[in-house]
Each structure stands twice: as structure tokens, then as C-alpha cells.
């Protein structure tokens, strides 16, 4: 009987040891002297700011590098003005078109479709509806840029994901797609 008890005890110890492997907790570290940063890290907690986190909104009026002022307001009038008078500062060439295509595939094609016909994967799965065919809308390079910047109807603003220059590259590619779709 004693042997039996020993076996049971051994099993219990083994189980306790294995149950320590918790996937929801990070592994323990050995002398993590230089592991944790002294300064604050991206997205980390920090006492340096009032709300305790590193991610802060820019101070009002901050202008970041490569910032290009955009004076058209996010109103129907602003849209009309951009459509009629805003022009791309970019040269129309293959390099910009290629960059625009890569960015379009990432940021637009999921709804607007690879051809810009409004039949992206999300539309096909009926997750996101009402995406127009580019050729059925009277859009110009100014209005395309305006809509990427501010969004329109159910489309959100993509200004936080694409820089001003990148938005112009996408605009150039959208114009090409629209021309290809035209009957």
C-alpha cells in the first residue's frame, strides 16, 4: 500500500509542476537587468503624463514633418471646392502609380475592389455595402484626395493611416482605375 501512496504523491507533484505552464502569463526571466527600458516605450504606461500613458495627442497646433496644409473644410462646400479646384502636386509617372497601387491594395481594395468597381471582398460578403463603382461618380483628383482625407458618408478618414503624399499616390491610381472602368 505504501508503494501505491508514493506513486500517487509522485503524480501529484508532476501535475503541480506542469500546471505552472500558464499561457496567459509571460514566462519568468533570469536577471532581467536591461530588459525593461528606463525611458518610456511606445504605448507603454508612464508617470510622466497626467493620464499615465505614453500615447499622447499632439499639442494643438503641432505641425509634423512633411505636413502639407489642407485648407478645404470637411463640409459639402469644401468637397465641391476640392472637386473643382484642387490639383495634385505629384508628377504623373509609373513610380508614383506603382506606389499608389501597393497602397490601394492595402487600404482601399478590401471594399472598393482591386479594379475599383466597388466589389471588394467585404462587399461580396455583404459586410460593408453601398460602395460605388468609381466610373459612376463624377469624381476628380481633388475630390478623391478630399474623400481619402476626410471620409464620406460611411467611409472613414484615412488621413491617420496615409500621409498626404501617399494619399496623392493613391489618388493617382484611383484615377487610372476610373479611366480603365469607363465604358
Amino acid at each position: 500500500m505504501k508503494a501505491f501512496k508514493n506513486i500517487l504523491a509522485g503524480l501529484a507533484v508532476a501535475m503541480v509542476l506542469f500546471s505552472c505552464q500558464d499561457k496567459q502569463k509571460p514566462n519568468y526571466q533570469f536577471f532581467p537587468n536591461m530588459y525593461a527600458p528606463v525611458g518610456y516605450e511606445a504605448y507603454g504606461k508612464s508617470d510622466a503624463f497626467a493620464n499615465g500613458m505614453e500615447a499622447q495627442l499632439p499639442v494643438p497646433g503641432t505641425i509634423n514633418r512633411d505636413f502639407v496644409p489642407y485648407d478645404y473644410p470637411n463640409t459639402p462646400e469644401g468637397y465641391a471646392a476640392a472637386r473643382d479646384s484642387l490639383k495634385s502636386p505629384l508628377e504623373k509617372n509609373e513610380v508614383n502609380l506603382e506606389k499608389g497601387k501597393a497602397l490601394f491594395t492595402i487600404y482601399c481594395a478590401v471594399c472598393h475592389g482591386d479594379k475599383g468597381d466597388g466589389k471588394g471582398i467585404l462587399v461580396q460578403n455583404e459586410k460593408f455595402l453601398g460602395v460605388p463603382d468609381y466610373s459612376t461618380r463624377p469624381i476628380t483628383e481633388g475630390s478623391i484626395f478630399h474623400v481619402i482625407t476626410y471620409g464620406l458618408n460611411m467611409m472613414g478618414s484615412h488621413a491617420s493611416q496615409l500621409s498626404s503624399n501617399e494619399r496623392w499616390e493613391v489618388t493617382q491610381y484611383v484615377e487610372k482605375l476610373r479611366a480603365d472602368l469607363m465604358p
Partner: peptide, 16 residues
């Protein structure tokens, strides 16, 4: 409806 209206309208829900 899906290709023209659904960007702003739902049948039973207020949107844009």
C-alpha cells in the same frame, strides 16, 4: 440598394 443606397441608408436603422 446595396450598391447605391447602403452607403448611407439601412432599412431599419438610422445611419447617415
Amino acid at each position: 440598394f446595396n450598391s447605391n443606397c447602403a452607403a448611407c441608408h439601412r432599412v431599419n436603422q438610422k445611419l447617415v
